[in-house]
Design a protein around this nucleic acid. Structure first.
Length: 898
RNA sequence: GCGGCCAUGGCGGAAUUGGUAGACGCGCUAGCUUGAGGUGCUAGUGGGGAGACCCGUGGAGGUUCGAGUCCUCUUGGCCGCACCA
C-alpha cells in the first residue's frame, strides 16, 4: 500500500481517493441510526434526572407547548436550543433537570370538540400522543418520566389547592368589575388578551360588561415585581423594560379639590391624582372621566351631558380611532377652589381623554406643561400659564402656544415656589397640602400608583381548571374542602351551543354546602389557562407528589430554573404571572424561599420561510415547489405541472400563506440531526432564522462529511486507551493546538448560547482536521501523530455531540468507544497548547496596518520597539518622519505614531 | 406621540467588547473527479488599480495613537406601549 502510494505520489494531493471509497460504500444513514440511538438512550435511562447531589444542579427548561396537534419548526428550534444546553451541561458534570409537559387546557380543544363532536380530553390526549412521538424523534435529552399535562386532575388538583391557599392568604379577590367580554367565544378576556379592541383568539370586537369575577391580586406585589427585575441580570434588557413599563409605577399626590357649592350636586369635593403637583399654579381646569360617578350623576339631569357620555363610551378602541381622537369635553358648570387660593376658581369638565380606571378618574389640567391638557385648553379657549422656565429661557418672553414644555427647569409665576427646582417644588407642595386640613382630613396625600391591574382569572369555559368554590344561599362563598379536591370536570358535556357547558350541566353544579349542608351550587367558571403555566416549572421539581403541589426540598434542590427558553411573545403575560405565582407560593409555603423563578431567560427568534405565489394569486406550499438555480437567479416551479411560481417575501411560517414546512417531513428526509443543526447555525439564536430546502441539503452534506472524516480518523488514530506521549512532533503539535483551540472556543460559545458561533467553530475544526488528514503521506505514522488524530477525532465528535447527538454516537462508536458519548464527560482543554512561544503582532503605522511582527511571546517593551523600528515596511510607511510614540498593547497590537 | 432595538460583501452572519474588518457557512467563478437520481475535491471570491497601494461597516461630524464598537446629529427598518395625568 505504501509503495503504491509512493508510485502515485501525486495522488496524495487528492486524499479523496480514500474518501471516495468511503462515500460509496457507507453513507451515514440517519433513518436507521436515529431511532436506534433514541431507543438506546431510553433503555439505558441516560437522560433521567440526575440524582447525584454532590454535583451542581442545572435546570434547563423550554416553554412547554400547547398540544395543538403537531409540532412546528418553531418548536424544533426552541427544543433544539434547550437540548444543546442540557447535553452540554450534563457533559460538564452538572446534574441536569430537563423535563417536558403540556399546556393542555384551552379553547382550541373546545372548538375542535364543536367541529368534530368529540370530547376536548380525547382531542387533547390524542394530540399529546402525536406530539410526544414527534419530539422523541428529535432525540431530545428529556426525562420523560416527569411528563405532566395541565389538564390532568393529578395536576389541577394541586392548582385548586394553591387557589384556596391564596384565598386564605388574602391574595384572591372577588369583585364586580367591568370586563372585556368576547361575544364570539362567550368569555371574559384579560386586558392583555385584548389587542386593538379585539379578542386575541377570536378577533371579535370586545364588549364591556359588568360581572362578578375572581381576581388574583397581582397588584399587591407590584412593587416587589418591579424591584425584582433589577436582580434578573441574565434576562434580556428588552423584556425587563417591557415588564417595567407594564407595571408602570408612578409617584404622585392625591389632591382633594373643594367644589364650590352648587344646587346640581351634593358632593363637596373632587379628588385628583397628579404626578406634577409642582405645576399646580399653572392649573386651568379640572377634568373627569365620562364614567366618573360625578359625571354619571350630573348626566341624570342634563341630557346634553348624557349624550356626550354615551358618545365617549362609543369611542373606538382601534389604533386608527385613538390616533385621530380629538380632545373633547363638556363644561359641567361646576367650579372647584384652588387648594392654595380659595378665591381662584377652576372649571370642571367631563373629558374624553381622562380614564376612569387610572388614578381617581379625575385630573387637574396644566396646559403649559402637558400636551394633552394644552390640546384640550386650546380647543376650549382655557388659556395657559407657564410655571416651569426652561434653563436659559427669558421669563419675560417665554410663552407656550401649541407645544407643551415637559422638560427640566425652574419654577416661576408660582408664588412661594418661585426659584425652586421641579423636585423641590413637588416636595414643597406635598408638604404644605398634607398640612392643610379640609373637611377634617389633610387635603392631599402622597400616593404611589401602578398601571398594573389585578389579574382576572374567571373564564366562562369548560376546558380549564375548575375554580374550587361553592356558592351557598345562606353561607355565601364557601371554599371546597381540601379533602374534596380535585373538583373534576364532568365528562358528559356537549358543545352544540355557545356558552359554558358547566353552567348548563344538569347535575354537576348542584351540591350540598360543605358548611350547612343546604342547597348550593358550584362555581362554574374555570381558570384562565395562564394560571396553569404559572407554576408548572415548580411542579416539575417533584411531579409525582400526590399530597402537595410541591416539595420544599425538591424546590430547594432544583429551583430556580437556570435557563428558560421561549418566545418573546411571552415577555409580559406569562413571565409576569409566573413571577407573581412564585411570590404567592412562597407566601403560602409552597416555594421554599424562592425569590424569582427564572435566573436566565432567553427569547429565541422565529423560523421564517419565503413565500410562493402562483399566477392566479394562490399561495403555494414549499413542499409543492422545486427551486432551481438558473442563469437568471433562483427560480421556483410547481412540482405538479412545472409552471413557474413567484418567489415572495420571507415571512413567519403561517398556514394562511402556506409557507410552512413540516418537521416530520424534514426528519424523515434528512434526519433530526440535520434539522437541529440547521436551526442553530448561521443566525444568532435571538434572531429569526430562514429555513430553506437548500440549506437543509447543505447541512446534510456536511453531516456526511463529518461521517467520512471520522472514518478516516478512525483508521489513523491510536486505540482509545493509549497513554499520552510525552513528546510531540511539529505536525502532531500543530494538530493538537488546533483541536484544543476549537475546544476552548466551542465551550465559550455554548456557555453564552452562541450556537451559531459554536457551529462555525466545528466547521473550521473539520476543515483543519481534514487538511491534517490529507497531509498524511503514509499509513505508517508515528505514535505521537496517531495520538493527535485520536484526540482530534474524539474532541471533534464531542464538540458537535450536543447539536447532532445521533451522528455523534455513531461516530463515537466508530472511533472505538464502548461507552456512549452522551455519558462521556466534556474534554478538558490544555491551555498550554493554545499559548504560542512566538507570536505574530500586527503592526500599525498611524493606525493603519502595515504588516506583522513575529517575535518571542515574552519579549519586553524595549525589544518590541526595537524590532518594530527595524521593520522595513515601518520605515517605508513613516516616510522619514520621526517616531513620536509607540503604543504596545501586550499580546494584541503595536501602533507606531510618526 | 413615547420608549427600545437594529443597520457590516451578492446573502446569513463573525470581529477576543476600543486593537489585523469580513471568521464560518451559502452563493458565485475556474479546474479536476464522478457520470447519472441529493457527488466529491482544489483554488479564487468586499470595491478600485497592471502595480506598490488606495477606498471601504446606512449618512455627517466628534473623542482617541487607534472607532463596526464610544459621543452628537441624521436617514431607514423592526419591536413594545399607547390619552396612565
Amino acid at each position: 500500500m505504501a509503495e503504491w502510494c509512493c508510485l502515485l505520489g501525486s495522488i496524495w494531493h487528492f486524499p479523496s481517493k480514500n474518501r471516495h471509497l468511503n462515500m460509496e460504500s457507507e453513507r451515514y444513514n440517519a433513518r436507521e441510526a436515529e431511532p436506534k440511538w433514541q431507543k438506546f438512550w431510553d433503555e439505558a435511562g441516560t437522560f433521567l434526572t440526575g440524582t447525584d447531589e454532590t454535583r451542581p444542579k442545572y435546570y434547563v427548561l423550554e416553554m412547554f407547548p400547547y398540544p395543538s396537534g403537531r409540532i412546528h419548526m418553531g418548536h424544533v428550534r426552541n427544543y433544539a436550543m434547550g437540548d444543546v444546553i442540557a447535553r452540554y451541561k450534563r457533559a460538564r458534570g452538572f446534574s441536569v433537570l430537563h423535563p417536558m409537559g403540556w399546556d393542555a387546557f384551552g379553547m382550541p380543544a373546545e372548538n375542535a370538540a364543536m367541529q368534530n363532536k368529540s370530547h376536548p380530553a380525547d382531542w387533547t390526549y390524542a394530540n399529546i400522543a402525536t406530539m410526544r412521538a414527534q419530539l422523541k424523534s428529535m432525540g431530545l435529552s428529556i426525562d420523560w418520566t416527569r411528563e405532566i399535562a395541565t389538564c390532568d386532575p393529578s395536576y389541577y388538583k394541586h392548582q385548586q389547592k394553591l387557589f384556596l391557599d391564596f384565598l386564605a392568604a388574602g391574595l384572591v379577590d372577588r369583585k364586580q368589575a367591568k370586563v372585556n367580554w368576547d361575544p364570539v367565544d362567550h368569555t371574559v378576556l384579560a386586558n392583555e388578551q385584548v389587542i386593538d379592541g379585539r379578542g386575541w383568539r377570536s378577533g371579535a370586537l370586545v364588549e364591556q360588561r359588568e360581572l362578578t369575577q375572581w381576581f388574583l391580586k397581582i397588584s399587591s406585589q407590584a412593587e416587589d415585581l418591579l424591584h425584582g427585575l433589577d436582580t434578573l441580570e441574565h434576562w434580556p434588557e428588552k423584556v425587563r423594560l417591557m415588564q417595567k413599563n407594564w407595571i408602570g409605577r408612578s409617584e404622585g399626590l392625591l389632591v382633594r379639590f373643594e367644589l364650590v357649592p352648587s344646587p346640581a350636586i351634593e358632593t363637596k369635593e373632587l379628588e385628583v391624582y397628579t404626578t406634577r403637583p409642582d405645576t399646580l399654579f399653572g392649573a386651568k381646569f379640572l377634568a373627569i372621566a365620562a364614567d366618573h360617578p360625578l359625571a354619571q350623576k350630573l348626566g341624570e339631569s342634563d341630557q346634553q351631558l348624557k349624550d356626550f357620555i354615551v358618545d365617549c363610551s362609543h369611542r373606538g378602541t382601534s389604533v386608527a380611532a385613538i390616533e385621530t381622537a380629538e380632545k373633547k369635553g363638556y363644561d359641567t358648570g361646576l367650579k372647584v377652589r384652588h387648594p392654595f387660593d380659595a378665591d381662584w376658581g377652576l372649571p370642571v369638565y367631563v373629558a374624553n381623554f381622562v380614564l376612569m380606571d387610572y388614578g381617581t378618574g379625575a385630573i387637574f389640567g396644566c396646559p403649559a406643561h402637558d400636551q394633552r391638557d394644552l390640546d384640550f385648553a386650546n380647543a376650549y379657549g382655557l388659556g395657559n400659564q407657564p410655571v416651569i422656565l426652561p434653563p436659559g429661557a427669558d421669563p419675560a418672553s417665554f410663552t407656550i402656544t401649541t407645544e407643551a414644555y415637559d422638560g427640566e427647569g425652574t419654577l416661576f409665576h408660582s408664588r412661594f415656589l418661585d426659584g425652586l427646582s421641579i423636585p423641590e417644588a413637588k416636595e414643597e407642595v406635598a408638604k404644605r397640602l398634607e398640612a392643610t386640613v379640609f373637611d377634617g382630613r389633610p387635603i392631599a396625600k402622597r400616593q404611589i400608583n401602578f398601571r398594573l391591574r389585578d389579574w382576572g382569572i374567571s373564564r366562562q369555559r369548560y376546558w380549564g381548571c375548575p375554580i374550587p368554590i361553592i356558592h351557598c344561599e345562606s353561607c355565601g362563598v364557601v371554599p371546597v374542602p381540601e379533602k374534596d379536591l380535585p373538583v373534576e370536570l364532568p365528562k358528559d358535556v356537549t358543545f352544540d351551543q355557545p356558552g359554558n357547558p358547566l353552567d348548563r350541566h344538569p347535575t354537576w353544579k348542584y351540591v350540598a354546602c360543605p358548611i350547612c349542608g343546604g342547597p348550593a351550587r358550584r362555581e362554574t367558571d374555570t381558570m384562565d389557562t395562564f394560571v396553569d403555566s404559572s407554576w408548572y416549572f415548580l411542579r416539575f421539581t417533584d411531579p409525582k407528589d400526590q399530597a402537595e403541589p410541591t416539595d420544599a426540598s425538591a424546590v430547594a434542590r432544583w429551583m430556580p430554573v437556570d435557563q428558560y427558553i421561549g418566545g418573546i411573545e411571552h415577555a409580559i403575560l406569562h413571565l409576569l404571572y409566573a413571577r407573581f405565582f412564585t411570590r404567592a407560593m412562597r407566601m403560602t409555603d409552597h416555594a421554599d424561599d424562592l425569590k424569582e423563578p427564572f435566573t436566565g431567560l432567553f427569547t429565541q427568534g422565529m423560523v421564517v420561510h419565503e413565500t410562493y405565489k402562483a399566477k392566479d394569486g394562490a399561495w403555494v406550499a414549499p413542499a409543492d415547489v422545486r427551486i432551481e438555480q438558473t442563469p437568471d437567479g433562483r427560480k421556483a416551479f410547481r412540482l405538479d405541472g412545472g409552471t413557474e411560481v413567484e418567489i415572495g417575501s420571507i415571512e413567519k411560517m403561517s398556514k394562511s400563506k402556506k409557507n410552512v414546512v413540516d418537521p416530520d417531513e424534514i426528519i424523515e428526509s434528512f434526519g433530526a440531526d440535520t434539522a437541529r443543526w440547521f436551526m442553530l447555525s448561521d443566525s444568532p439564536p435571538e434572531r429569526d432564522v430562514i429555513w430553506t430546502q437548500e440549506g437543509a441539503q447543505n447541512v446534510s452534506k456536511f453531516l456526511q462529511r463529518l461521517w467520512r472524516l471520522t472514518g478516516e480518523l478512525a483508521e489513523l488514530a491510536s486505540p482509545p486507551d493509549m497513554p499520552k506521549p510525552t513528546v510531540f512532533s511539529p505536525p502532531a503539535m500543530e494538530l493538537r493546538k488546533v483541536v484544543h483551540g476549537a475546544l476552548i472556543k466551542v465551550g465559550e460559545d455554548l456557555d453564552r448560547l452562541r450556537f451559531n458561533r459554536a457551529i462555525a467553530q466545528v466547521h473550521d475544526l473539520a476543515n483543519k482536521v481534514s487538511a491534517a488528514v490529507g497531509a498524511v503521506e503514509t499509513p505508517e505514522i508515528a505514535e505521537d501523530l496517531r495520538f493527535a488524530f485520536r484526540e482530534a477525532g474524539d474532541i471533534m465528535v464531542q464538540l458537535f455531540a450536543p447539536m447532532m447527538p445521533h451522528l455523534a454516537e455513531e461516530c463515537w462508536a466508530r472511533l472505538g468507544h464502548k461507552r456512549p458519548v452522551a455519558e462521556t464527560p466534556w474534554p478538558i482543554a490544555e491551555p498550554a497548547l493554545v499559548v504560542e512561544d512566538v507570536i505574530s503582532l500586527p503592526v500599525q503605522v498611524n493606525g493603519k496596518k502595515r504588516g506583522d511582527l513575529v517575535i518571542d511571546r515574552n519579549a519586553d517593551q524595549a525589544a518590541i520597539e526595537a524590532a518594530v523600528l527595524a521593520l522595513d515596511f515601518v520605515q517605508k510607511a513613516l516616510e522619514g518622519r520621526p517616531v513620536k510614540k509607540i503604543i504596545i498593547v501586550p499580546q494584541r497590537i503595536v501602533n507606531v505614531v510618526g
